[in-house]
Amino acid sequence: MAVLSRPGIQLEPHQVVIRPLVTEKGTHLSQRHNSYAFEVVTLATKTDIKKAVELLWNVRVVAVRTQTRVGKPKRTKTGYVQTKPWKKALVELHEDDRISFF
């Protein structure tokens, strides 16, 4: 079932969320603010992310904040290359909902 109703590419929930970010900062956010960090596909909008997380984990999403992380230049033996830009989403859940990544 497609999540998106707007024109263009229709993404499935599992295509929107690439992986949860299990880091020290992410764990802190989840414990303190009930916010969870995910790596998401760059095409996804906040609405896509909200719907995908609600569907995948069966929770209520209160807010979504996104950051687009630009790719960094990396030196290789043939010269400089650029790593891919990626999108990070911080999803704040309803205070009664929780996600357990581990």
């Binding site: 970010l21 299990v22 880091t23 020290e24 992410g26 764990t27 581990f102």
Partner: peptide, 8 residues
């Protein structure tokens, strides 16, 4: 993603 000793 975690510093040593800070892993949950």
């Amino acid at each position: 993603g975690f510093r040593p000793g800070r892993v949950p």
